[in-house]
Design a protein around this nucleic acid. Structure first.
Length: 437
DNA sequence: TCTGGGGTCCTAGGACCC
DNA sequence: TCTGGGGTCCTAGGACCC
């Protein structure tokens, strides 16, 4: 049996753990730059505020005064996610995090009744120890577990835990009652095409001929259909494997055409990307950088350049990546545009250990590993950008807006006492944490 | 005025080869 | 007028996910 543990309204729930005054109120968490809504509390959903709504439309709306806004606080969400994963690993033989708020668990050799009981226990334990509400879906395949989780969230009588045997009347009944677009892996476009063919429900998809689906759509959809019918054909092993590309990009707080602004933004993205690269133990072969003007401004000239710079040698040294960024930017920068976004992507990633085993590949710079290791360790301990590479101008037009950010309660001591937080809630939380360990 | 960021996989089609 | 057949590799772009 496969389980999917999925936190409810994860970002909002993380905020509420430390700000209990948000309980029972409409809460929205905003994207980077406070641009649009990326997480909603149930109360906000009840106001029929859609996902992705630009924040400025919200603040102009009629319910604006009652809605609590928070900027994204990824340091907090990431840390809560790591705690959730750790709690699951303490209990389950195998755990595969799928996203920041969803984790698959593998419960081989347990009866359905035992699985269901474990699901209920996990749910209570996560609520008690982390303060997070979750739902659990249990089924024989990943896609059905995802489907069961969807039911656990939507149908109150499951009380947060839904188990589907896979090939019984109960499963079939729920599949028949669910539109095909609600299936994991079927997005808006596929749903529209499937409906044209008369495939309107999850059940109809599960009964479709995989060969035909493969021919008319893709192997992905054929697999989804088989998984719905109870035949496992997705493996989550890939989740532990290193990423094939690493990207860091952000919109600017203000549009800017200044070379120094754009360069500084790219420098920061390059440093962040290099950190991610070293954390997963890879080397990069090339650096892609891109710039965007504002698509929504039809009245302004548009320019979306991108370029790939091949590194002279495979590297995870921030300095090499910064050199590539400098070269690339010189090639694509044009002064007459107002840029709104910039990004850096690392490509051609290979495993560092395997590569360095070869005597033909000595490191390019002396003591580079020690230097990068030290920089990473200091930044982990004292906060991002404590050590930077030659970026003197810390503030610029490109800096993010995040007017509503809460404190980084679980990772920054200095922010615990910040005004507006609730020391009581924090103390309670920390006490629970220390009694666990 | 103000509209996110980071991934994956797959397919189609072009370049190139014999 | 009529213009082969088959393979590989690479890239751009589409579709999906959260």
């Amino acid at each position: 049996m496969i389980g999917l543990v999925d936190a409810n309204n994860f970002y909002v729930s993380c905020e509420r753990v430390f700000q209990p005054e948000l309980n029972g109120r409409p809460v929205a968490v905003l994207s980077n730059n406070d641009g649009c809504i990326i997480a909603r509390s149930e109360e906000l959903k009840a106001l029929e505020i859609p996902m992705g709504l630009p924040a400025y439309q919200l603040t102009n709306g009629q319910n604006a005064a009652s809605i609590h806004l928070r900027s994204s606080n990824y340091e907090l969400y990431g840390d809560m996610s790591a705690r959730l994963a750790q709690l699951l690993r303490d209990v389950c033989p195998a755990v595969a995090p799928y996203s920041i708020d969803e984790m698959f668990i593998y419960l081989d050799g347990m009866t359905p009744t035992q699985c269901h009981t474990l699901g209920q226990q996990l749910r209570r334990r996560i609520r008690r120890q982390l303060g997070l509400p979750v739902c659990v879906g249990l089924a024989p395949t990943h896609t059905l577990a995802k489907f069961a989780n969807h039911l656990a969230k939507k149908e109150p009588h499951f009380e947060g835990v839904c188990l589907l045997a896979g090939n019984d009347a109960v499963t079939h009944r729920w599949l028949k009652a669910t539109p095909v677009g609600a299936v994991w892996g079927v997005g808006r476009r596929l749903a529209a095409r499937l409906e044209l063919m008369g495939i309107r429900t999850a059940w109809a998809l599960s009964q479709a001929d995989p060969k035909q689906l493969r021919k008319r759509f893709s192997v992905v959809l054929a697999r989804t259909a088989m998984e719905l019918a109870g035949t496992p054909c997705l493996s989550m092993n890939a989740l532990d494997e290193p990423r094939q590309r690493i990207m860091t990009s952000r919109s600017f707080g203000q549009p800017t055409g200044a070379y120094a602004d754009v360069h500084n933004a790219l420098r920061r993205h390059a440093q962040r990307s290099a950190e991610k690269l070293r954390r997963q133990g890879s080397l990069a072969g090339a650096v892609l950088l891109f710039l965007h003007t504002n698509r929504h401004r039809r009245d302004q000239p548009q320019y979306f350049p991108q370029t790939v710079v091949t590194l002279p040698t495979l590297s995870d040294d921030t300095r090499d990546i910064l050199d590539a960024v400098r070269q690339g930017l010189a090639a694509i920068y044009r002064p007459r545009y107002r840029f709104i976004k910039a990004g850096v992507m690392l490509l051609g990633l290979v495993d560092a250990e395997q590569h360095q085993l070869s005597l033909l590949n000595p490191p390019l710079r002396p003591r580079h590993a020690e230097l990068m290791g030290t920089v990473d360790a200091i930044n982990r301990r004292l906060g991002q950008d404590t050590i930077r590479f030659g970026m003197t101008q810390a503030q610029g037009a490109w800096e993010l807006r995040c007017a509503h950010r809460s404190a980084r309660f679980t990772t920054q001591w200095g922010e615990l006492a910040r005004a507006g937080t609730h020391p009581g809630a924090v103390a309670h939380y920390l006490a629970q944490q220390s009694s666990r360990s």
